[in-house]
């Protein structure tokens, strides 16, 4: 087991190198000169531009730039961005916000997705099931930027139940509305996956046997139907965590959440290679670790799966 985890962690190294190289190259290949873009309509002297270029190593060829970036990374010196702020400090500021947002969204989609999915699955073909299925289809069909604005307008502006935007006031309660918007799309998938899985497991032989043993209905549902139905759902939830972190760009934009998505968007617009790559690297790490956790959780949920060594 330990060996399995170690091996998986070692796999992070090539994944990490590959993604950073790719992202770095894509930022490098963006058209336009990032230094000139900084100054807009009033270009500074050539000497200033040359100095800035040298400061950010933009005068070096690609491989040298990338090599310097890696070297800095391993000495825990992420450097400064174009506004002179240390990148490490920026990461330390934006990541907790996005992690809060993503975790809150994850909890919302797990609780509601699994809850509604279970009830719908147990009442297959009844009114509740049909309603929930239809509603989830609608949610899947509408893009998140529409859903986000609708939620903001209804709950934030008309009803006034929540602050329409987050701004600098970041807390679990202010993030509730954006987390809900973020959760909605995956929620529909979790619901459908749970429902399908519950329907499949409800007719399993061991469920009938469990009933024949004299177990009460709630016990059969919880210990035998729901427990077994969680196997695919947990896999999906874990995999969606990475998506929630990275996919928060639109949601963070709508609700003005000072998180990773917003920062990443700005950095891409400014062609700030080091900032983009730093953010993406952390996202890659999150993704890989989330997947590892899913694998471990999977083995815990399904004892037939054992990772040897």
């Amino acid at each position: 087991m330990i060996q399995f985890i170690l091996r998986r962690l070692l796999q992070v190294i090539p994944v990490f190198l590959g993604t950073t190289l790719l992202v770095y190259f894509m930022v490098f290949a963006l058209p336009g000169d990032p230094i000139r873009a900084l100054f807009g309509d009033r270009p500074p002297s050539e000497a200033v531009i040359a100095a800035l270029r040298q400061q950010y190593n933009l005068d070096q060829p690609f491989w040298v730039q990338y090599g310097l970036f890696l070297k800095n990374l391993f000495t825990f010196n992420l450097g400064v961005d174009f506004t002179g702020q240390p990148i490490a400090a920026t990461l330390g500021r934006v990541f907790p916000v996005t992690v809060m947002l993503a975790v809150e969204a994850l909890v919302i989609q797990a609780v509601f997705g699994i809850g509604f999915g279970l009830i719908a699955g147990l009442r297959k073909g009844k009114i509740f099931d049909s309603t929930v299925l239809l509603a989830s289809l609608v949610v899947i069909a509408i893009p998140i930027f529409v859903l986000g604005f609708v939620l903001q307008l209804v709950f934030g502006v008309y009803l006034g139940w929540a602050k329409p935007t987050v701004g600098t006031d970041v807390s679990w309660s202010t993030l509730l509305l954006p987390a809900f918007a973020l959760a909605l799309v995956s929620f529909a998938y979790v619901l459908r996956l749970t429902r399908a899985s519950v329907i499949e497991n409800s007719t399993a032989d061991y469920v009938r046997t469990a009933t024949a043993k004299g177990l009460s209905r709630p016990r059969v549902v919880m210990a035998h139907i729901l427990r077994n139905s969680m196997i695919p759902v947990v896999t999906y939830l874990g995999a969606s965590l990475g998506g929630l972190m990275g996919g928060a760009i639109v949601t963070e934009g709508i609700f003005n959440v000072p998180g990773v998505g917003q920062k990443l968007y700005q950095a891409i617009l400014r062609s700030e290679g080091p900032t983009v790559v730093a953010i993406v690297s952390v996202l890659v790490l999150v993704f890989v670790i989330a997947n590892l956790l899913v694998d471990l959780l999977y083995a815990w949920l399904d004892p037939r799966i054992r990772y040897e060594k």
Partner: peptide, 9 residues
């Protein structure tokens, strides 16, 4: 083969 729940001891 199918009448014992695979996830419980």
């Amino acid at each position: 083969m199918s009448n014992l729940n695979p996830v419980w001891k």
